[in-house]
């Protein structure tokens, strides 16, 4: 091989490497974008049929067995996740803290939900959160990134504004529009998987508050009135199913948690398609009750769900 040949080979190699560097992610992205989805709400069922409970609460067992029991009692995952659907599982993984701090959703809960969605024939399950701390650190140290990937989900970034698209909040008075993650526009099924905990600003963070992690401009929520915006966030894209992780509940120092935080070992999981009902049950579990949180009342007034649990079929299971 003479010098000229060597240079040519090298040039080709470098060219190929360069092309791979730039085009690899692009090609993967194109392959992943796939066919256009049917749009939200079309394939996902709304409320549960009459013979099944509206809300399921499971106490005891393990994180995974609570998920299994709750979904079984609610009629099985296939009621919520049709074959071939694109599922967004949106946990709370906003904080760069260890799972023991219970500031993020329990990775075992997320993992089991992803597994069940895929077993039910979901085309793809995507997990993301618009984190409060640095996103890669929060994804990784929450333990959720690894758990979701192990279960077969794709873990998507949500740290840049260009991932978000403007949608209208129909019927909203304060949050008339916002940019939400584009994956939610594509998703057939939106599974909201919050962790229940104390929250310095909102009092409690659970199902409705978790939607802030699907929105780009969180500062808007704070500056325009947290309660109104949290209540109206579900108007942007209502979750099809809410599964609340209340295994270890942070009672104080939330949402991040600190050395001063107090905890309650509830070993509880609450499941319902009704976002208001799960937040009411969660508020009772946390202690103060739903009356302490203005956004629950506002959401009920907007018709987003039923705040009176007595009017719902509630199934309580102890493992």
């Amino acid at each position: 091989m003479d010098r000229r040949d060597f240079l040519k080979t090298l040039g080709r190699g470098a060219g190929a490497l360069g092309a791979a560097y730039f085009l690899g992610p692009a090609a993967r992205a194109l392959a992943q974008s796939g066919v256009p989805s049917a749009g939200s709400g079309g394939t996902a069922p709304g409320a549960l049929p009459g013979s099944l409970p509206d809300l399921v609460a499971v106490k005891g067992g393990t994180s995974a067995s609570r998920v299994d029991a709750a979904l079984a009692a609610a009629g099985g995952i296939s009621r919520f996740v049709p074959k071939g659907s694109l599922v967004v599982v949106k946990p709370n993984m906003g904080w760069d803290v260890r799972p023991e701090m219970a500031a993020n959703t329990d990775p075992a809960v997320v993992k089991r939900i992803v597994e069940l969605c895929l077993a039910s024939g979901a085309r793809k399950v995507v997990v993301f959160d618009h984190t409060c701390d640095a996103w890669r650190a929060a994804y990784s140290n929450s333990g959720i990134e690894r758990a979701a990937r192990d279960a077969g989900a794709e873990v998507a970034p949500a740290h840049a504004e260009s991932y978000y698209q403007a949608v209208e909040g129909r019927g909203a008075r304060t949050l008339k529009g916002a940019k939400i993650h584009e994956l939610l526009l594509e998703a057939d099924v939106f599974v909201n998987v919050p962790v229940l905990k104390n929250h310095g600003g909102a009092g409690m963070t659970c199902a409705m508050k978790n939607l802030m992690g699907a929105v780009w401009d969180r500062g808007y929520f704070h500056s325009r009135g947290l309660d109104a915006c949290i209540a109206e966030a579900a108007l942007l894209r209502k979750p099809d199913l809410n599964i609340v992780d209340a295994g270890k509940v942070m009672l104080s120092g939330g949402p991040r948690g600190s050395a001063a935080s107090r905890y309650s070992e509830q070993r509880l999981l609450i499941l319902s398609p009704d976002i208001v009902a799960v937040d009411v049950a969660s508020a009772r579990t946390l202690g103060p009750g739903p009356g302490a949180f203005e956004y629950i009342e506002k959401a009920a007034a907007l018709g987003l769900g039923q705040p009176d649990l007595a009017k719902l079929a509630v199934k309580r299971i102890e493992l």
Binding site: C132, H199, G200, G201, A202, R218, G219, H222, S223, R224, G225, L226, D227, G253, G254, P255, R256, S258, A259, A260
Partner: peptide, 17 residues
């Protein structure tokens, strides 16, 4: 309006609501 973003993010409890 209610807020608390600062206390939410404070890792040491130096800011509280």
């Amino acid at each position: 309006t209610r807020c608390g973003a600062c206390a939410e993010h404070c890792p040491t409890g130096a800011v509280r609501i």
